[in-house]
Design a protein around this nucleic acid. Structure first.
Lengths: 341, 341
DNA sequence: ATGAAAGCGCTAACAG
DNA sequence: CTGTTAGCGCTTTCAT
């Protein structure tokens, strides 16, 4: 029967057991050069035998760092965020940090979690913020070294790691335009998200760069994490008059919802409709003729973000302005038809 | 530029600011009945104005709980585990706990993470263990309230939440047998995993229950989290002589790998081969004719597991023997053909 | 109704 | 080379 964690072995108990002072135990375990090799061995053996595990909270009170890094995400079933969690976990593991994961897609929950992370005195925070964090959230985060990831909010840290959202959608849309499509439907995140507005801008820019009027395009914007929104938007587009000849998405969740909706509606690509999907999950390759996608190096990005933060934490450097932008690759499969059909 | 977290407001500072004692501040914020309403209001206002956030580590030293729950998983990109993380996060959030996520698929990493969770003095742990945790891992976990999830190891806690692994594969295999298949390929986790051996047993049991010799079946067992294994195993099965007429998988990652391999090999279901897939991700519905799957209520299971642990933590009850088994549902889509073809 | 003081486990400054 | 001691921020007696 697992006893409560309160009954754990302390440094004092180890010390008493072998008849030395607590400080000797502390120093021996910290490999302090002033302690003799014999004593070190003695202490280490006793500590191991008694199952001594350092008490980090107690250590923290002496000014030490918490070895805790907060990761604030809107969702973890989204493959982007799962990838981020995995990469951040690897970063933390290598550097001896632990990951405290907070999942919040609403500002009030985000605020509560920020407060809890602050209460735990995390060493730093990586955050994919909600579009409009509360003043309290901002005030709390201000007191901790933190970095924004993917999404970006002016009121938070000037350090940001993201993708080139505008170029990403410009690229995909240009591909469809080059294939001859003029009436293109875009389903993406709402404009209050930094990613949403940048991606919509890229979508439109592809039109103007091709000398076309974006008015021929149809835009459906909504909450990017809501699969229901993607499905409904797709329904609406299919019933538009005239319906679009091509679809491009601006969020991973939306891509999944669109693929499912098309499958259910019995439409096949590229015959009935051309499709370019945001994100490149393995499953996208087995949809219909293979989905043509916009692939981003999320894993590398998250890793870079984590390492950057951790390095600054270790050196005690402040978090200054920093921007890191990852590019996008168009993965051509069958769903968007050939160029110039 | 974000200052180090060390400069946070303490209860003493709040006290000094309004000319009361630290203990008064502590009591006021804890809503102690002995403090006058006026003083409480005064303290609360000052605390809010100064941005005071309680120092949990300091609180812990007084014997308080850490409000931290460790979640040890082999992987988080696997949809099962992402779902578990999401559900556990929701549980923790409701109860005021925070989630420390550890990702480890090897026993030595698992041990290091267990030690780190112990060092952070987490209140409890939910673990999907590696098949053979080290003695040190066992010794550490013994000292913390913990529950096993999905996988099960005799040397850890007697509390376990999982699915009926044997029945699950019996069900899927029986479905294929009923459809007339005799030469069935099974690709699943190795036998050292509790889930791997139970699922294989279920696969075999379907044969004996139908009065058939399981020797006609082909079994490919390997690391369940390794997509490469699934792909290779599928390759091998397709080249077997004679090749199986049906495939059933015993792990989510493997299902994905198999679908991808079949797609690449240009085989279509159920014409070339019948398929029943373990797990029911949304993407499985748009593979070929729609994948017939074995669906498990992972979210409910994880939620039940989290709530069960948290309840015990709150009441200070020890973790005794407990088993909770969730059932499986066969989701019939097109990939397994009709019964009696 | 509030204040003073002890002590949780640890590290670092200060003795010896 | 090792021991003694103070103090981190908080809660909790014990004393006003």
């Amino acid at each position: 029967m697992a006893p409560r964690a309160s009954g754990m072995v302390t440094a004092r108990q180890v010390a008493d057991r072998i008849g030395v002072a607590v400080s000797t135990v502390g120093r021996a375990l910290a490999d302090d050069p002033r302690i003799s090799p014999e004593t070190k061995a003695l202490v280490r053996r006793a500590a191991a035998r008694l199952g001594y595990v350092a008490n980090t909270p107690a250590r923290m009170m002496r000014g030490g760092s918490s070895r805790l890094i907060g990761l604030m995400l809107p969702d973890i079933r989204n493959s982007f965020y799962a990838t981020i969690a995995e990469a951040m976990s690897a970063c933390c593991d290598r550097a001896g940090y632990q990951l405290v994961v907070s999942i919040a897609s609403a500002p009030d929950v985000e605020e509560r979690h920020a407060r809890e992370l602050a209460s735990a005195r995390v060493a730093g925070i990586v955050i994919v913020p909600t579009p409009d964090p509360t003043p309290q959230t901002r005030e709390i985060l201000r007191q901790f070294p933190h970095v924004q990831l993917l999404r970006r909010v002016a009121s938070l840290s000037p350090a940001w790691f993201g993708i080139d959202d505008e170029e990403c959608l410009r690229l995909g849309t240009a591909h469809l335009i080059a294939a001859g499509h003029r009436r293109i439907g875009y389903i993406g995140g709402a404009l209050q998200y930094s990613t949403g507005s940048a991606r919509r801008a890229g979508f439109r820019r592809a039109f103007t760069e091709a000398g076309l009027d974006p008015a021929g395009a149809i835009e459906m914007l909504g909450p990017p994490a809501d699969a229901g929104f993607g499905a409904r938007a797709m329904q609406a587009l299919l019933q538009a008059d005239p319906p679009p000849t091509a679809i491009i998405t601006g969020a991973v969740q939306v891509t999944g919802a669109v693929l499912e909706a098309l499958q259910r509606a019995g439409r096949s690509a590229p015959r009935d409709i051309a499709v370019v999907g945001f994100g490149d999950e393995p499953s996208f390759s087995w949809w219909g003729p293979g989905l043509t996608t916009l692939a981003m190096p999320i894993e590398d990005l998250a890793q870079a973000c984590g390492n950057w933060l951790i390095e600054r934490l270790r050196n005690g450097e402040p978090i200054g302005k920093h921007e890191s932008v990852a590019g996008t690759r168009l993965v051509r499969r069958g769903s968007a038809g050939m160029d110039r059909p």
